[in-house]
Design a binder for these strands. Sequence first.
DNA 1: CGTCAGATTCTCT
DNA 2: GAGAATCTGACGC
Length: 196
Amino acid sequence: MKPKKLPRSFFNRPADQVAPDLLGFHLCHQLGSKVIKSRIVETEAYVGVEDKACHAFKGRTPRTEVMFGPPGHAYVYLVYGMHELFNIVTAEKGLAHAVLIRAGEPVGDHSLNLSGPGRFTKALKISRSHNQADLTRLPLYVEEAEPAKSIKVSQRIGVDYAGHWAKRLLRFFDAESSQISGPRHLIAKARPFKLK
DNA sequence: CGTCAGATTCTCT
DNA sequence: GAGAATCTGACGC
C-alpha cells in the first residue's frame, strides 16, 4: 500500500466513525529532516455538545473554540497540569466532535513508549503549540496504512462523572496491540467491534 | 495482581 | 477556588 495523507473528507464524519477507522494508520510529525511516525492503536470518540464527557459540553470557550471549527484540525490541551493530550477535530463545522489518540506503536527505527495519551504526545513531540494545526498538511499529518485487523470497544477512561455518557462504548483499540493503556478491567470487559 | 496519593497548572465559576 | 479526557511509584496481598 502506497502511503498517502488522509484528506479532509476522512475527518468530516462523526467521531465515533472516525475513531475506529484511524486504528492502524500512522500519525506523522516532521521535525526538520526527520519524521517521527506512530501507528495508532487506541482512540476515544467525543461526540459533541450533548456528550457530557466532551469538553464542548460546557459550550464554546476560548479553549474549546477549535472543536467548533472545521474537521481535520488538532485540539491539544493540558490535563492535570502536566500532560498534553492530542485530539483530532471531526464531523462538520459546529458539531464539536473530536477523537482523542490514547496510544500508539513505534514505526521505524525508534523505540519510544507511546502507551497512554500523555506519553503519546511526549514521544511525538506534540505540544499545545500544535493546537489548531491543520492535519492535512505538514508537519503534522495522518498517513493511511494497513487497518487494524481486530478491533475491540469499551467505555472511555477517566470520565466517570459523565453519567450515562460514561457507559457508552466510545473507546476503540487494536486487540492485537501490546501498547494499550488504561485499567485492565476495562480491557477485559471490552467486546469485539466490526467496521461497517 | 490491586488500590491510592501526589505532582502541577490551566480553565472556568 | 475547585476540579481536571494522566502517570508514577509506594504499599498490601
